[in-house]
Nucleic acid binder design. Structure first.
Lengths: 294, 294
DNA sequence: CGCATTTCCTGACTGTAGTCAGGTATTTCT
DNA sequence: AGAAATACCTGACTACAGTCAGGAAATGCG
């Protein structure tokens, strides 16, 4: 473990210095770096102020001021009420804003190329491969699990995606009404729990626990965004929910799943769950599992 | 190549965000980040102000002010003339400075661990391996080749290391006096050229070109610091020197090498040099090479 | 409807990072 | 010895990044 730590610290040091220098040199030419990032985040299709604030992690006042700066320079335009919610403002790039974005894009490409240029063909290939791996695993390790209120907007968004996915993957379709065995209230503390997995502020997965009997819990709504599949998020959600169950003094947790969700079944099997007989009336379930918590 | 660029940009984005957040959280707790880096660079054995300025890439005024700040906080002490050069000041950590450095060290370790902690054992191992590779290759790609004055301090330092290495590797030893066939003046533009390879401002290699006849050049003093061997620095130096020879309208370049420098001979062979008969009276040479420049 | 909340905005403020122009010792070059 | 260069310092300044308090408009809830 000691050697790992040293390797990571060396990585941290080298990469921070190298990327810092390059970012300044290429992207911070005659514009504050945040402004470049803001332009990038607005993107060619525009965005709401709220989205920008969240993605960039900015204070609302600061974000507003940055947008005003971009407006003054004629790069972006905020249109008032876009029909839906009159408070939410939409930002789009102007014509010259688009040009500027393309310029930033080209510079980013140059930056990337400048990293490869001094290397041999073989070294370049190895660097790209290693970077891809680091990026993937760093995303995995940056994902945080936090208990949230089931009625909050992020939770609602995740659950929405979850139901959408069921609808698209079940051959027979999915009707949310037929499965409201568990109401949202059941996922609220202190009895239940709804976990959100998020990466840089963006929700990328969820999972819920509710209490069936004083000794038994049920895990439901386990979903992982397609963007981050294969990174072990599902397993971490599951383990964290089991931990929540232990804290609630539950002796075992149960869950059910649909025939067509093979990877979920695989996850449960390799996580210490054993298949049991039907324990509920869920019309969409074909397999039932249970795990005894130590 | 397009795909490579995209991968690098994703890497850049993810890593900058992740390390930025972590660095702030762990190292910038109640102290400006530069101050932490300064403490780290002073280290347990102290350093001169000049070294600190170079390693951190700071303006001299700024560096001075940071040191004053550390002094005020009782973390560092600058001692005036240390015997040698009265202008150069030496900085050392005080007792509480050492304690603070240990604290920062521990935090850096925590930071490293926090990146591994959410991952499975296997993922962690892969992340460390990939990071090691990225760090290595990023160092390689960050190395810059610049022509310098042979009498400058960095050039002198590199040449010194070069001669030291010869002395330690030649079984018969090495006497600099016996080999001053090439005086430093011959490496000055516009005829000759001395290249320095540097990484983040630190010199890590050198190589020189001098003109033998109007059509023929000679490459000398090719040296690569042990820290960066295996990264292709020698080959890049060689190629850059050949380019310099081409710009001087030379038709071929020659060089000689000692029996005991096997890796150098290997480099020359794989770079298009062919072995020729003795062309000089260098008592330390056993092999002579030539390359025709197109 | 009235009140709380949300979304965005503005103004005032702080801290960090860094530059630039000069100034004083000390050393090196000639 | 005198001039030029070097190493460090000081003071004044700028840009960038970000926080905090509060306010106006729109929306949601009871």
């Amino acid at each position: 473990m000691r050697a790992d730590t040293a390797a990571i610290r060396r990585f941290n040091r080298t990469v921070t210095r190298r990327l810092g220098v390059l970012n300044e040199k290429y992207l911070g030419r005659d514009r504050p770096l945040v402004e470049s990032r803001m332009l990038f985040e607005i993107g060619s299709s525009g965005a709401t102020v709220r989205e920008l604030r969240e993605r960039l992690g900015l204070d609302s006042g600061y974000a507003s001021r940055l947008l005003r700066a971009l407006e003054r320079k004629g790069l972006a335009a905020t249109s008032g009420s876009a029909g839906e919610d009159g408070r939410v403002k939409h930002v789009r790039l102007t014509r010259s804003g688009h040009a500027e974005l393309r310029r930033i894009d080209a510079l980013s490409d140059d930056l990337a190329q400048s990293m490869l240029e001094p290397l041999t063909r073989e070294q370049a290939a190895r660097l790209v491969a290693a970077m891809t791996e680091v990026e993937r695993l760093l995303r995995a390790s940056g994902i945080e699990m936090t208990p949230v209120d089931p009625y909050g907007p992020n939770a609602q968004w995740c659950l929405g995606r979850y139901f959408e996915e069921l609808a698209s993957r079940f051959p027979e379709g999915y009707d949310r009404g037929a499965d409201v065995a568990a109401g949202l209230d059941e996922f609220r503390p202190p009895e239940g729990c709804l976990l959100l997995a998020s990466l840089f502020g963006e929700s990328v997965g969820c999972g819920a626990l509710r209490v069936l009997t004083p000794r038994m819990g049920e895990i439901k709504r386990l979903w992982v965004s397609p963007q981050v599949r294969g990174l072990g998020v599902g397993r971490r959600l599951l383990e964290t929910l089991e931990q929540a169950a232990r804290e609630r003094k539950l002796r075992c947790v149960r869950l059910d799943t649909h025939e067509s969700l093979a990877e979920a079944r695989q996850l449960y099997r390799t996580s210490g769950y054993r298949e049991i007989a039907r324990f509920n009336a869920n019309p969409y379930a074909h397999h039932w599992f249970e795990k005894i918590l130590e």
